[in-house]
Amino acid sequence: MTFVHQNGVKALDGVSLTIEKHELVGIVGENGAGKTTLVRHINGLLRPTSGSVLIDGADARGTSVAKLSRKIGIAFQNPDHQLFSESVEHEITFALKNFGFDDALIEQRLNWALDFFGLKEYHKSSPLILSGGEKKRLTLASILAWDPEVVVLDEPTVGQDAIQKAKLLEIARTLHSAGKTIIIVSHDVEFLWSLQPRLVVMKRGRVVEDGPCAVVMQERELLEDARVSQPQLVALYESLSRRPASPFQDVSQALSWVSGERR
């Protein structure tokens, strides 16, 4: 999958970005850097003033949001901006009906989603009584249910506690290894660091850096300028006088290196 995208207005300024199938991409940058605007271009909610968005090599210009969404599922930040049904079940099947799935398939996808997102016990409950973390998972379930090839997560960890975050991390990893293309817009550098995605840094409507997480997160000045902070493990790595070739990806890596050093 490819999209090239260029835009004359201030919100986005000459953005060119190509995302391949099965990639895991993180987008960071300060509020107002254009991340959300960029995301809204991917499924046609916004159309570029100049330049183009290509999905699977085809120009998205003439294709409706509904058609594009079939391929690209976007989970927006606030679950309260989309939950409306009288039951969890209906919430999940809403999009499937919109996309014209047949009953047997709807049934099958519903069961998969309830199971995968741990919502089985609530399938008849109203979405309004769910906790914040459950609402978030229901939002994801209602989108993953139609099996989009590309999944966009807009600030998935906002307001989520450690337990929910761990679940979200697990979900993102599973989906990625199942072959989905995943794009995550997030302020949560620790969360992104755990996923080690390809990292795109945005500032004032431009892409200012694009590369592997482990490399980009070491560019202190660039990040400072884009108002992004470094994950703790990277900050630790950089302050060490003797250190391995690349930053620690998780605590256990740091631990084995440090204990090796101290022996």
Partner: peptide, 14 residues
Amino acid sequence: GLAIPPVFSLYSEL
């Protein structure tokens, strides 16, 4: 349900 910052988990593991 606390998210232990890496620095603290590293310290206690050590």
